[in-house]
Design a protein around this nucleic acid. Structure first.
Lengths: 107, 107
DNA sequence: TGGGTATTTGGCAAAATAGACAAATAGTTT
DNA sequence: AAACTATTTGTCTATTTTGCCAAATACCCA
């Protein structure tokens, strides 16, 4: 199979980089079952609201989240549920087996 | 479903962080069809050999690669082929559809 | 309009990451 | 042992990331 272009590698890396922070993964987890406003996410994240807002911007700039302002608040939504389906593979890296892990078992 | 523990979020983030660099993704791509020695990878990566070595260390510390010394050289191997199966999802984020992309089509 | 809530942005300091060069290490060959 | 190849590690510098506080912005309601 052909080698990915440098541009594709760069684009992929941007997505992975955005996923490379525990608070951002917590945000994704919170959004897995539906949109949330920033103030709700702020309750979950244990960081300044401004910090949460910046994490959200990183995820949105990467294309992972979308946002919509309704009235006073901004709601964020997960654009690609397929991300969470990757955790089985990630967990296999963590536990060192190299074999995908059934998420229903570990969670 | 239960919220992941902070430790699990941290562990996952480490894996994603390791994947968040174009050179490291290029290395993973090169290892997709079998182990390679550092000198081979160095030809592909366009960076100092010492830099390649450090990238390899990052991937190995994350559990994504393993290494084996044979004679003069060190061979690296992909421990979790499931990683490349995630690119379809990553590409969907890149192209903004939110729908997984068939890798056979884009490559 | 004025006050209140929700969110983002500016600015700064601390920490982490990346990359180059040179030196060190390990193994091989003569 | 000396020379040579392959790889890693020390050190330094530049860049990026993170996170807080304070200020700015946007919207709602009285």
């Amino acid at each position: 199979m052909p080698t990915p272009t440098p541009a594709l590698l760069e684009a992929r890396a941007e997505v992975f980089k955005a996923l490379g922070h525990p608070s951002r993964l917590a945000i994704i987890d919170a959004l897995a079952d539906g949109e949330r406003c920033v103030c709700d996410l702020n309750k979950i994240i244990d960081a300044d609201m401004s910090t949460v807002s910046r994490h959200l911007a990183v995820l949105r700039n990467a294309g992972i989240l979308s946002s919509e302002k309704r009235g006073n608040q901004v709601f964020y939504r997960l654009e690609c549920p397929c991300i969470t389906s990757f955790y089985g593979c990630v967990e296999s890296v963590i536990n060192g087996t190299g074999q995908p892990v059934d998420l229903d078992v570990i969670r």
